[in-house]
Write a protein that binds this DNA or RNA. Structure first.
Lengths: 129, 129
DNA sequence: TCGTTCCTACTAATTTGTTAGTAGGATACA
DNA sequence: TGTATCCTACTAACAAATTAGTAGGAACGA
């Protein structure tokens, strides 16, 4: 009857997760600083969001002296996979092939990138002859 | 200071757009029927959403006798491109190549799909030797 | 013509997501 | 020891998103 919670981290939540994946466990202050170049938020705003993320199970936190240190409770791999699968389902009716095609057709890829993708395709082809 | 509107059609809005892209202009009743197998909504709920979509510029509507007929005002191409670009930016830091790699690595593609992607890659390679 | 049906417009309830303020405890330094 | 600083917890505000109800008009059939 009402609005369901997002199945994946929201935009700001993903920003915060990326910071913690990249730079390791950190207190709110550190996350706020890392966020600052692209997004100037009040300290309490960042704290609120990170508190919600801990509730949702995205983060774990432990007391260090006077303040909390936060760390990711979910992996980058599983998170990215979840988000991508969701888009593939919603936009490409579940066809990962259609999504991949769209990307290589639309994107402006250079030679090095094209080779990397071909290499993976070869491996995939060998897996199941 | 507050939550900004989504830059792309929301989940339900995308469902509705996909129906109209696939089946052509339609009144609310038709959209509701097409939606029904996966999502049972009150007539007024569908109407509310489609009214909002018209306000947002996603749909156009014209009076046919007593009721309105709705049609997409944005193309499938541009919509899909926008959604995909957004995910590529947010999740893969703007690298379409990383996104494509992720897809072919993660997805379970069959021989036919692999060939289709290789073919596109060949064409891409030829474009810029 | 009168009731039933169907459609629209308007209103509303409720949760999520985003941003921030206030109160109060702990800490550190002069 | 007192005062300024820093951190947390709690509260709040508000738009967006989702779902639906009510009122009222048009139309159609008996």
């Amino acid at each position: 009857m009402t609005r369901p919670a997002s199945r994946h981290p929201t935009e700001l939540e993903l920003e915060i997760l990326k910071i913690l994946w990249r730079e390791g466990p950190m207190p709110v202050r550190g996350v706020r600083q890392a966020l600052a170049p692209s997004r100037k938020l009040a300290y309490t705003s960042v704290m609120t969001v990170m508190g919600i993320m801990a509730q949702k199970g995205y983060l774990r936190r432990s007391k260090h002296g006077t303040h909390f240190v936060y760390q990711p409770a979910i992996t980058k791999q599983s998170t990215v996979r979840g988000i991508v699968r969701d888009v593939v389902d919603r936009v490409f009716d579940g066809s990962a092939a259609a999504a991949a095609l769209h990307l290589v057709e639309t994107a402006d890829l250079d030679e090095r990138e094209l080779r990397a993708i071909r290499r993976i395709l070869e491996q995939k082809g060998e897996d199941k002859p």
